[in-house]
Amino acid sequence: MCRNRFTQILSASAAALLLSAVMLSGCGKTETTAEGPPAAPESELGTATAIPGAEASSGQPDLSQTETVSFQSGMDVGAIPMPFEVEDVTGPNKGDTLCYRCLYGERPVVGIFVRELDPKAETLIQQIDQEVASHQADKLAAFVVLLTDDPAKVKPELKKIASEKKIQHVPLTVFAGTESPLGYNVKKEAAVNVMLWEGDVKANRAFRTGELDDAGIQEVVEDTRLMVN
């Protein structure tokens, strides 16, 4: 009986030792978790991927795409000026109604059509008067046509300009009505429209109110010189 009791004790002890071994063998294991992607190298952190077509703009306009648009009025280059009558106010035929287009014939001519006589327009007339004086040998001629609904009212102003600016070679004339003479196509928006012809139209420059400046005056002068040289 004692032997059996001892055997039971040994069996119980062995079982206890086996259970302890099993429990100890599980220690140190961690719960299995899903592993993420490997961390990026430190050198790649903070970098951004450029979006195609999203490059930063320099903010400067492409000047090669810039186009200057001029105000269009008057006859086309190559057109033939039509006859029309004006009343001469300050020229050699003052007081008469005549056709300066017809009188000048095939000579090189600067025709200055105006609706407004501001200081710049007066300077332009003065400059062309000087050009006519300098190119007498080339038979250069010019005349000014003021388009007006009230010729009687503006005549004193034209006489004053001719006197103050010493205009001696360019007749200042009036055309009854603010509409353009037939065929000259002077638009209502044109305050000054200069057309140069010698048989046919060689150049045409138009300016709306306030647009005529020193540069514009010089361009007309250069056009005049090119026509006679």
Rank of each mutant, 00 (worst) to 15 (best):
N4Y: 09
I9M: 13
L10C: 14
S11Q: 10
A12K: 04
S13D: 14
A14W: 10
L17N: 14
L19Q: 11
S20E: 15
M23S: 13
G26P: 06
G26S: 13
C27A: 09
C27E: 04
G28C: 00
K29W: 07
E31S: 04
A39K: 02
A40C: 12
P41A: 13
E42A: 12
E44H: 10
T49K: 02
P52M: 09
G53K: 00
G53L: 01
E55Q: 09
A56Y: 11
G59K: 08
G59T: 10
L63M: 12
V69S: 00
S70I: 08
S73L: 02
G74A: 02
V77R: 00
V77Q: 06
G78C: 04
P83H: 07
E85L: 12
D88T: 15
N93V: 13
G95W: 10
D96R: 15
L98A: 04
Y100S: 14
Y104P: 10
E116N: 10
A133Q: 04
H135D: 04
A137F: 02
L140F: 03
A141R: 15
A141V: 13
V144I: 06
V145I: 08
D149M: 03
D150V: 04
A152H: 11
L158R: 14
K160Y: 00
A162Q: 01
S163H: 01
Q168N: 08
Q168A: 06
Q168I: 05
Q168W: 04
Q168G: 04
H169S: 07
P171G: 15
L172W: 01
T173S: 15
V174C: 14
A176K: 09
T178K: 05
P181N: 08
N185V: 05
E189Y: 02
E189G: 02
V192A: 03
V192P: 00
V194Y: 05
W197D: 11
V201K: 06
A203I: 08
A203V: 09
A206K: 01
D213A: 02
I217N: 01
V220W: 02
V228C: 01
N229C: 03
